[in-house]
Computed example of a mutant assay.
Amino acid sequence: MKKKAILLDRDGTINVEKDYLHKIEDFEFEKNVVDALKIFSSLGYTLAVVTNQSGIARGFYTEDDLIKLNNYINDRLNEYGVNIEKFYYCPHHPEKGIGKYKVECQCRKPKTGMLDAAIKDLNIDVENSYMIGDTLADIDAGFNAGLTSILVKTGHGMETLEKLGDRKVEIYNSLYDFALKLK
């Protein structure tokens, strides 16, 4: 049976936006995010992260650095009874990448490679699932993959509001505010 899921952007949605975050000591949850994720879990949603990480492509940090931080995030969430099923990430950038990371890939949002992989791997029911993020890339990736896109005003969300154009998207102050709506 297919599962309902919430695919989440990471930076600016789950954690406070800090350019090219890769150090555990710089990590900080957005306000009430743990409570929001607890609500989603209690409602039976499978949780996964889909995140562009061009800092890898630019040589600012390594894939190992990213994996360590993602594991740390999940370990912290596990303490509250929340589990991110899987972290998907795009380490590429078509212009600013270095070496093997300078490619035009299918995984970098707004393309749907990461979302498609999550949908397949986790057996996601697209019609009853969401993509939540703070940028147009997040919103468009969700739409492009057939999910319902939600914009949060945390991170780059306020700037994104001005760029939405005619996109039909629900907008919430935070992940927690959306969780309360679903509850």
Score class of each variant (00 low, 15 high):
Ala137Thr: 13
Leu136Ala: 10
Thr46Trp: 00
Arg76Leu: 11
Glu162Phe: 09
Asn123Met: 07
Asn173Glu: 15
Ile119Phe: 13
Ile14Ser: 10
Ile24Cys: 00
Pro94Met: 11
Asn173Thr: 12
Lys109Ile: 10
Arg108Pro: 11
Thr62Met: 02
His156Met: 12
Lys183Cys: 03
Tyr61Trp: 07
Val103Glu: 13
Gly55Asn: 05
Met131Gly: 05
Gly155His: 13
Lys86Tyr: 11
Lys23Leu: 14
Gly12Val: 08
Glu162Tyr: 08
Ala179Lys: 04
Phe87Ile: 02
Ser129Lys: 12
Asn128Leu: 03
Ala118Met: 06
Asn70Pro: 09
Gly55Lys: 07
Lys18Arg: 15
Gly99Asp: 08
Arg76His: 01
Val169Met: 11
Leu175Tyr: 09
Phe143Arg: 03
Tyr172Val: 12
Ile132Leu: 10
Gly142Trp: 04
Val34Ala: 04
Gly146Lys: 11
Pro94Tyr: 13
Ile132Gln: 14
Asp65Tyr: 01
Asn52Val: 02
Lys102Ile: 06
Asn32Thr: 01
Gly142Ile: 03
Leu115Trp: 05
Val126Thr: 14
Asp138Met: 09
Thr154Asn: 02
Ser174Gly: 05
Cys107Met: 01
Phe87Glu: 05
Ile132Gly: 13
Tyr20Met: 08
Asn32Cys: 01
Ile73Ala: 07
Lys3Thr: 00
Leu21Thr: 14
Glu17Ala: 05
Asn83His: 14
Tyr61Gly: 06
Gly55Asp: 05
Ile14Leu: 15
Phe27Pro: 01
Phe178Ala: 08
Pro91Ser: 10
Phe29Thr: 12
Lys38Leu: 10
Lys68Asn: 09
Gly157Asp: 08
Met114Lys: 00
Leu164Ile: 04
Phe87Asp: 02
Ile39Val: 14
Asp166Leu: 01
Leu115Asn: 14
